[in-house]
Design a binder for these strands. Sequence first.
DNA 1: CCGTATCCTCCACGATACTG
DNA 2: CAGTATCGTGGAGGATACGG
Lengths: 152, 152
Amino acid sequence: MRRVSLSDAKCPVARALDLVGDWWSVLILRDALDGAKRFDDFQSSLPIAPNMLTRRLTSLVEVGLLEKRKYSDRPVRHEYVLTPLGEDFEDVVNAFLAWGNRNLAPEGPTVTLVNRNTLQDAQPILVDELSGKRITSRDYFRRNRAKEATSA
Amino acid sequence: MRRVSLSDAKCPVARALDLVGDWWSVLILRDALDGAKRFDDFQSSLPIAPNMLTRRLTSLVEVGLLEKRKYSDRPVRHEYVLTPLGEDFEDVVNAFLAWGNRNLAPEGPTVTLVNRNTLQDAQPILVDELSGKRITSRDYFRRNRAKEATSA
DNA sequence: CCGTATCCTCCACGATACTG
DNA sequence: CAGTATCGTGGAGGATACGG
């Protein structure tokens, strides 16, 4: 019974983590956002074993974050391109990027999320799509407390 | 040689992932942002074994995302509170939250990142702190291509 | 180049039991 | 309530070799 599945958790964060799978996938998505398409693009960018890369790529295709597309018939060649879902993941990569850059860059921060600059508020904020009002993640969680239960 | 360390990777994304450690940590941080402080708060919110929770909590304290603070002498009781670094992680949780909510919520999306609404641009964008210009993550990576090498 | 096939190791994670 | 101690295991992740 190893590894609890969070895929049917109520919390979108848990569902998201479960779908993505693992750290490698985030890095692969990062590279794809960076323009990587071919096996070797990813391979040369990451210290990952080729079989591991195959597994992660396959998994990302299965969950719909990447699409495996044939770009040559002979020899048969594929490339891995982001689906709309994968493109949309850029927000998450950006958040990691900005956070890591702010806090973990030896040379000091060089980028920031745009709304850190443009808004009075301290941090990026969520918006309730119905009311149009700004909410914090905490508000979100509180609102959904009843329905929420990370448990699988 | 299991589990490659990315802690000294050049890429902030890789460093960030390495520091945080694993999925559980993200969920624990999520709960902390949601107001959880005590062992049992986390325990009751997550389908996680107590020893596992102890390990993750310890790890998060070690890397400076949480602080273990005594709030009672007898009996001795601690609570786990977010450090500034941990507070700052809310951006990342928000991104996961918004992405999961947009794409993985059975009932349809209910929240979004604020700048999706307020900006013309399709997605949240990074800003170069020196030039003040907007860049994409791809720009960021390209700029740092030379120095970059995820390899440990 | 672009992967797949095999094999193996080890530790993350979980179950369970116990304590002040 | 807030953990610690012990133990077992599966599968993530790596090394290596091979193939079209």
